[in-house]
Design a protein around this nucleic acid. Structure first.
Length: 576
RNA sequence: GCGCCCGUAGCUCAGUUGGAUAGAGCACGAGACUUCUAAUCUUGAGGCCGGUGGUUCGAAUCCACCCGGGCGCACCA
């Protein structure tokens, strides 16, 4: 249990005592009570807002209540002072040994420091991400959602959730028909036919050539002149499988592996969509009706048509949404509602990572989840904004139509997996992100990937040097650390808290920012040795002091490694 | 016209779920090297947190309405 969590428990025990003694009324809202690092280090080691949050429901004033709580906090083991400050904060000063113990915990827990072990109580979160249409290779635009989703999945695991990483394969729509037709053309090409230019509306990419060849190997010339109705149902699954192989390979370049691939076509074939529709119908949430024409610009081909509609407006949507098209087939939403129903049956909570251009469809799917699970399961949608590509400050032009886009594979090949992953997490997901091929590989402070890696490499270098000088043997006396060094311990000790808060907010980027700050603090501490050789981490004539500082460095290194592990980034041992 | 997201230093962005004097990087000013203990660090200046009201002990954060930008708005995915 982390230091902050331990003191949170102790504080709650004290508040419980106060309730029993009648000082506080029963049934107070405790969720808002927090143990935090104080804004200013001079205020102490820990701060709590308990008195301010509880004063109103307890019908007293914050400072008076703080006066009740503070002496009891001061009596706790490891606390040397508890002062009431400002509007009612209680600031705690801790015995330095508490931080020394936390540093020891960092090293003892190692790769698990910051992890929550929820055991049997772990909630299962299904997180669906990437889910790119299986019509071609992954391009650079897919990479951000892929990384954010994957890092969020790891983050949630660290925070004690059980996680299912899922990919929804959209293999049932018109795009997949187009894909199969495009492949058929390549198939005829592989059979020696001159197919000329790829007609408008078909996928022109060369990546379909090997698929055509594979089709030839599998079926010979059997379908070359056959009517479409004969080969389409055969080609579709064949080609989709090839595309998914390609996509899985692309994702593997980023270190991304899903647990589950769910097919929309199989979902429809299994009757799951009828089941979802029937369930909604039984709840009186489905009707046959005609929608109003869209506001603003009315499409030229609009005409009133009766559709099977879901009453999503009952759940806050602007408009009821069609589940079936006028030809009787399922809409994307119809299948999607059933798909989320299926996911909800295997998890306690759902998370989707979507491109921001799908913002408009969030409410209807959330409505469906609420309706189908009677409000027992929730869906959070994390919207990811676009990435703007630059090269030396100049925008990289991309055109989907001409097939001139930067693929994910090219991107990873040029700058490396770790750079792509780290950079995609240096912005809040819902803010646009600039990615400059030149800057992200630069060896400078402006490049956060480098900056954090460099801090870790310096620590690794320290460990090597200490081992070579024989300074690393024996137990360290951490009481030799000075205030600046202990401040570094305090900062590293926030890691478990940062993990928990980032997980609760579904915001993996917080890990990246935290690591950058921790790296900065370490670099500053390291640099003290330039001005004052007595502040260097390793001093041969002072083995005891060196051992203590080496422990500190190892603790920082461990936290950097653990944070990078959440992000899926390797920790560099050296920068050469 | 409606919905969602966003608006914080000249620029790019954080801001611990409502807390104490709003932070960091770049750029600008001043300083410390000759490279795994300078790929870095120290320090200075820089703010109407888009605006106006409201909620309360307390608001960049929550609510309402404006202003400005992005995305999306029947059976496409």
């Amino acid at each position: 249990m982390s230091l902050y969590a331990r003191f949170q428990d102790k504080l709650e025990a004290i508040l419980g005592d106060l309730v029993r003694e009648g000082v506080l009324p029963d049934g107070l809202p405790m969720q808002a009570v927090a143990v935090e690092p104080p804004r200013d280090a001079s205020h102490g080691d820990l701060a709590t807002n308990a008195a301010m949050v509880l004063a109103k429901p307890a019908r007293t004033n914050p400072r008076a209540l703080a006066g009740e709580i503070a002496p009891r906090l001061e009596a706790l083991d490891g606390v040397t002072a508890a002062e009431v400050a400002g509007p009612g904060f209680i600031n705690l000063k801790l015995d330095p040994r508490v931080w020394d113990e936390e540093l020891e915990a960092m090293l003892a827990e190692g790769d698990h420091y910051g992890r929550v072990d929820a055991g049997e109580d772990a909630r299962t979160i299904n997180i669906e991400y990437v889910s790119a249409n299986p019509t071609g290779p992954m391009h650079m635009g897919h990479s951000r959602g892929a990384v954010v989703g994957d890092a969020l999945a790891s983050l949630l695991e660290w925070a004690g959730r059980k996680v299912v990483r899922e990919y929804y394969v959209n293999d049932a729509g018109a795009q997949v028909d187009t894909l199969a037709r495009s492949a058929h053309l390549r198939y005829r090409e592989a059979l020696g036919e001159d197919i000329g230019a790829i007609p408008e509306g078909l996928y022109p990419g060369d990546y379909l050539k090997p698929v055509g060849a594979a089709l030839k190997d599998a079926y010979g010339a059997r379908y070359a002149q056959a009517p479409e109705a004969e080969w389409l149902p055969v080609f579709k699954p064949f080609v989709v499988e090839k595309m998914m192989d390609m996509i899985r390979k692309d994702l593997a370049l980023l270190g991304i592996h899903h647990d589950l691939f769910s097919s929309e076509a199989e979902l429809q074939a299994s009757g799951k969509v009828e089941e979802a529709l029937a369930t909604l119908r039984a709840k009186g949430l489905v009707y046959e009706g005609v929608l109003e024409p869209p506001k603003g610009e009315t499409p030229a081909d609009w005409e009133p048509v009766e559709l099977t509609l879901f009453r999503s407006t009952q759940f806050g949507d602007d408009q009821d949404r069609p589940m079936k098209k006028s030809d009787g087939s399922w809409t994307y939403f119809g299948a999607d509602a059933a798909y989320h129903y299926q996911k909800a049956q295997g998890a306690d909570h759902l998370v989707n990572i979507w491109g921001a251009d799908h913002a408009g469809t969030v409410k209807r799917v959330q409505s469906a989840v609420t309706a189908l699970t009677d409000g027992e399961k929730g869906l959070d949608v994390k919207l990811v904004q676009m990435v703007r590509l630059f090269r030396d400050g100049e925008p990289v032009k991309m055109s989907k139509r001409s097939g001139n886009f930067v693929t994910l594979a090219e991107m990873v090949e040029e700058v490396g997996k770790d750079v792509v992953r780290f950079m995609m997490l240096t912005r809040k997901a819902d803010a646009p992100l600039d990615f400059d091929f030149a800057k992200v590989t630069e060896a400078s402070k402006e490049n956060p990937v480098f900056y954090v890696q460099y801090a870790h490499a310096r620590i690794s270098s320290l460990k090597r040097k200490a081992a070579a000088a024989g300074l690393d043997a024996g137990a360290a006396d951490l009481t030799l650390l000075d205030e600046v060094e202990r401040a570094l311990v305090r900062q590293a000790a926030q890691f478990p808290r940062v993990v928990r808060l980032a997980a609760d907010a579904y915001e993996p980027h917080r890990i990246a920012f935290y690591l950058y700050d921790l790296a900065a603090a370490f670099h500053a501490s390291w640099n003290r040795g330039n001005d004052d050789p007595g502040k260097r981490f390793l001093i041969e004539e002072q083995p005891d002091l060196s051992r203590a500082r080496l422990e500190l460095a190892r603790g920082i290194g461990q936290v950097l490694r653990n944070g990078l592990a959440i992000m899926g980034v390797e920790a560099a041992e050296e920068m050469r």
